[in-house]
């Protein structure tokens, strides 16, 4: 038992700065989100805000309505990069990925469904 305790003590003491520091370092990194993931999430919020504004105000002129599509497309790819970033929190990358995916497919779904309602040539 004494040997075991000594070994443990020696083991932890010996690698205290190495492994412990490693773990500590990994933990401190993991609490920060990925930059690309966070950017992806921010772009998704901007795209969603534009979608909301265009729905609430009816404003869709000058291509403003479609700017959300390009923003979310960029956000979507940033989200993918964020998902593959290691040793960082991927929370925002996951949110960014799915939100941008929704915003990218949203106009296509709307177009298809709207076309089926009272379709006129």
């Amino acid at each position: 038992m004494e040997l075991e305790m000594k070994n443990r003590r020696l083991g932890s003491g010996g690698s205290g700065n190495g492994a412990g520091g490693g773990v500590g370092g990994s933990g401190s990194k993991r609490k920060f989100t990925t930059v690309t993931g966070f950017l992806s999430f921010l772009l998704a919020l901007i795209a969603l805000a534009i979608v909301n504004i265009s729905f609430l105000t009816g404003f869709n002129g000058d291509g403003a309505l479609f700017s959300f599509f390009y923003i979310s497309l960029l956000g979507f790819f940033l989200g993918i990069v964020g998902l593959f970033t290691k040793k960082r929190s991927r929370l925002f990358a996951i949110w960014g990925f799915f939100l941008n995916l929704f915003v990218v497919i949203f106009p296509f779904l709307m177009f298809i469904l709207a076309y089926t309602i009272n379709a006129t040539p």
Partner: peptide, 15 residues
Amino acid sequence: AVLLLIIPVMTLLTY
């Protein structure tokens, strides 16, 4: 994000 999703999701469900 959840708040901003309400209008698009409701619109999509309506369509």
